[in-house]
Design a protein around this nucleic acid. Structure first.
Lengths: 216, 216
DNA sequence: TTTGCGTTTAACAATTTTGTTAAACAAAAA
DNA sequence: TTTTTGTTTAACAAAATTGTTAAACGCAAA
């Protein structure tokens, strides 16, 4: 017996890195095989076809990301802490896979039929998950009136756009990869301030809060 | 003699539509030819190669967009009117070419070498064009402190993201193309409110202002 | 040892896509 | 009319890419 699980996992990992980390949106099966140091036919042995493999990768990765977001938005945290967490998670996720959204978007444009399949999986829109809390904030005069849809689009835009436009922004401002990472991390607070016009609470404080309320 | 100019322009126009409007990011030369109703070899006759054609299209379109943005940011308008114009223009441009940024981003990821060429064309960063006015606003306490870079990234993100994520957002919220256009147009005001926490001035008012000041 | 099973490979076939070329064509100039 | 110039086409060649298959390989059980 060879090393089935390891090789299959290795190929997946390398393909993910190629697509989502390095941004080779249209890497060929040969390039994936090279990256994993295996024969090209193995791609077909494990994943049947290139198409099939892509679907698998997208499915898995999207599901994981959605899970994370969902967990945050359905948590019992107060609104502003929830959003702070959301920003933190989304930006960090982007730092791990700088080209993920890029890839998804290109792929979706390529296969509009598949989009419905992917999107229909989540029954509840994330905008619905914050509707009530957002309405409270607005009613309390703590934030200017805005629809949940626009609020979520704003939030996603501010978090995701700098990653989508990574190459362009990085070149314009002459930033190295390290400098760009720093820029993104510091932007977390900028985003929070843009949305709420106040300083973002420390994440450690949020964690503490969560521990305390869980005890009670 | 045939009809050189018309055919060449036709091919360009159809290619632009295919890439930037319909979102066929990797349309083949055959598909472009079909769209324009001409023989595939004509693409090579006029544009030498597919690569060369893409470079040409990107070059032209990017230049035009940059020109528009530059004109707004270097105008003599007061800061907030300037930004209102910026938002209006960027969103409208996006409505004309919903997949333009998408295409640029994919293409840039594909050819990181070309990026420098495109970006180096504009000697002045747009963030530098608003630096002084932004500092005034901040000094006057009219807006929370923020770097020009982050301000511009925020602005671009809020304007461009909904177009980049068009397919996804449209599917999630079950919107037709018409409904999505409406959503985007209405978002202009949402974006302005998100940035400045006040209502956006009417564009007609801005035009009036510009006329008046020009007279003096 | 040899048999069996899952894994891996090399070689092949089919398809798609790009780029080239020579010839047909249309209209203006000689 | 004939020539010339520029435009358009069809047919061909070359390259890249995907998917298939049969054989080799390695390890564990018989």
């Amino acid at each position: 017996m060879g090393e089935e699980v390891q090789t299959e996992a290795l190929i997946k990992e390398k393909a993910r890195a190629l697509f989502f980390k390095k941004g080779f949106l249209d890497a060929t099966t040969q390039e994936i095989a090279d990256e994993a140091g295996v024969n090209r036919a193995l791609i077909h042995y494990y994943f049947r076809s290139r198409e099939h493999m892509l679907e698998m990768l997208l499915d898995e990765t999207l599901l994981e990301k959605k899970e994370r977001v969902r967990n945050i938005l359905t948590s019992s945290l107060p609104f502003r802490m929830k959003i702070a967490r959301f920003i933190d998670t989304l930006v960090d996720y982007g730092l791990t896979y700088p080209y993920l959204d890029n890839f998804i978007i290109s792929e979706m444009a390529r296969r509009p039929d598949k989009v419905k399949l992917f999107c229909s999986q989540d029954k509840i829109k994330s905008s619905d998950l914050i509707r009530e809390q957002l309405e409270e904030e607005i009613a309390g005069g703590k934030i200017a009136p805005i629809s949940p849809e626009n609020f979520m689009v704003n939030l996603s835009a501010l978090c995701n756009y700098p990653l989508l436009a990574k190459v362009v922004l990085q070149t314009i401002h002459g930033m190295t990869d390290v400098a760009y990472r720093k820029f993104l991390v510091e932007r977390k607070q900028v985003i929070y301030r843009t949305i709420f016009n106040e300083e973002m609470p420390e994440l450690t404080a949020i964690n503490e809060f969560q521990k305390t309320t869980r005890k009670n």
